[in-house]
Every structure is written in C-alpha cells, then in structure tokens.
Amino acid sequence: MVGFFRQILTNLGNLLRPPRYFAWQTVIYMSLFSWLMSMLARAVFATPFTVGLLATISWICLAIGVGWALETNKIRPFGISIAPWVSGAILCLFLFGSWGGRWLQPALVAWPLMSFAMVAIPTLVSWDLSRKSPSAVVRQQLALLFCLSLLFSSWFQFYFRIQSWVRDYPSLVADSVDNSAFVYRIPGQAIALPAGVNHLTVAEAMLQEQVNGKPWPSVERWLLNEEGQRQALQRQIQAEMGQHPSLEDALWRLDLQPLTNGLGYTLKLWAIWTGPAATQGGYYLEKTCQLMPVNQNVITQTEDTGAPPGYTTTQWASLTCNLETPRQAGNPRAVYGSS
C-alpha cells in the first residue's frame, strides 16, 4: 500500500519536475507565476496595463506550454496532432473571451487560422526572431494546411450565417429540414412554435374586444364589412408587432372568413405563411372561433343559444375561440374560395 502511494508520488514528481530547463513544465510554471503576479498586481492596485501585460504573458505561456506538453507526450487521438488546435483554442479564448456578448462567433471563426499560426510560426520564425526559410516540402505542407484552415473557418462562418437567418426568420425553425442538402438538425430538440401563433392570439384579443358582449345586430353589421375588418385586423397586427419588429413579419398574412353555422357564425382566423417552407404551397395556421347570439341574462352560457327567438328581448354576441391552432398545408383560399 505504502509502496503504491510512493510510486504515485514519484510519478507525480517526475511529471511536475522539468527534466531540464528547456521543457514544457517550465513554460507552465512561467504561466502560473505570471498569473499569480497579475493577481498580486491587481491586489496592490497596479496600473491596468501592468495587470493586462502579466495576464497576457500568462495566457500565451499557457497556450505554448499545453501545446508543448501534448506534443512531447505524443497525445495524438486518431494519429492527428491536436497540439496546435488546443493551443489555438486557448489563445482564441483569451483573445475573444473578454469581448463579452457574442464573442463565440469571432473566436470559432478565428480558431482554425490561429491553429495554423501556431503551426506556421515555429517553422517560419526562429528563436531569435529572424526569418527562417523552411524547405519546399514544409512550405507545401504549410500552404495546404493554410487552405484547409481557411475552409474550416468558412464552415464555421456558414454555421453562424444560418444562425443569423434563424434569428431573422424564427418561424423557419418550426419547419422540417429533412429535405435539405446542407443542414441537419440533431433530433430531439424542442421546436419552437411559429410566430404566426402570436399573430393569431393578437387577432383573437382584438376580436374579443370588438364583438364579444356587443348587441347581436351590430355584430352582424360588423361582419358585413368583412373586407374592412380584415384590413383593420392586419393593420392592428402590424402595429402590435412593430414593438419587436422582425424581418419575417412581412411574410405572415392574416386572413379571416366567417361561415354561417346555425344561428351564429364560425369565424376562421388564418395566419398564412408566404415565406420559405418545406412543402409545396406553404402552410397556414388556423384558429376556429364560434360567434353565437345569446340571451341577455345568460351571456356567459352558450347552451341556451338553441332557445327559440322571440322569447328573448335582446340578443348579445358571444365569442369563444379554440385554444389550438392546427397547422394545415397549402393555402386556405384554395379550400374556402377567394374572398
């Protein structure tokens, strides 16, 4: 037991003690020392320049040390040397991590190029900062590596461009990307609702305000001006969404269609998506509302709507909307005829 611990201690000691001065452990210790010094400098209120300089030296030493350690210990998963990638990642973290906000984007885009620099600089610049000219074989490898890192960087940029598309047009996420030749979504993600649902909610609130609890004859007159109500509804949605404008608002079209249903009406509210969609003809979201006349004393109950007219004095309108907004393929005007 004691021998086992002694063995571990010896191994640890060998790992931590640099075999000679020119070794990766020295650089890591320099990084640690520099970091402690920067902490000390901050504690004694040195100038920000001093603190920043010490921290910078610490980060650079950390990047070099970790890369060196990976390289000398021959840590090569799948035979690929990862040392420049890790060093490049550490440097990118240091350079862009302090930016705040959306720092991940420049960091990831710069990462392959930074890794290329970690490979290229030791072969192009010697220790006394004079230019070395490597052999033609090495130069060819460097050119190839540079083009490869440029390609990796472009892929990262493309990824972030897709994310900015999704920010501009959030409803795109609600559609299936299975047909795409470019993108893939890892299954099992929670898929957001299209923004049309919000439009329908706003439209429903507006309808409630305008017809619910109003005298039935005036509601029927309100319905007569169907085209006018449609335009008023669209204007109201635009005004409501204007507080958080999104590029995709222009691609949603709101429509409504009253259908007679016994004594009252069935109001169909549609949010029609006219933008990019996975299926031919796009899709729309449908909200179904029942607009029924009710007697004065039982405004909140709709069961009495079947009561024969004539016994009641005044009838009032009652609007009840379904909560769900089923998604249908195609265009509603193809089903219900043009207005």
Binding site: W155, Q157, F158, L172, N179, V183, Q280
Partner: peptide, 29 residues
C-alpha cells in the same frame, strides 16, 4: 465560401429568402 457569404449579405431580402429556402428546404418558394 467567402464570396458566397459576402454576396449573400448584400442581396435584396426577397432573393436572400430564396437562398435560405434552398439551403434549408432544398427548394425555391
């Protein structure tokens, strides 16, 4: 890639949305 990313950012919105449609759904709308 760089040319595509630069040009895409400068195109009018209606053409950009066609590119988005092609990339995400493999079809134009």
């Amino acid at each position: 890639w760089m040319a595509f990313l630069a040009i895409e950012a400068m195109l009018p919105l209606s053409l950009r949305s066609q590119i988005i449609s092609y990339v995400l759904f493999n079809r134009f709308y």
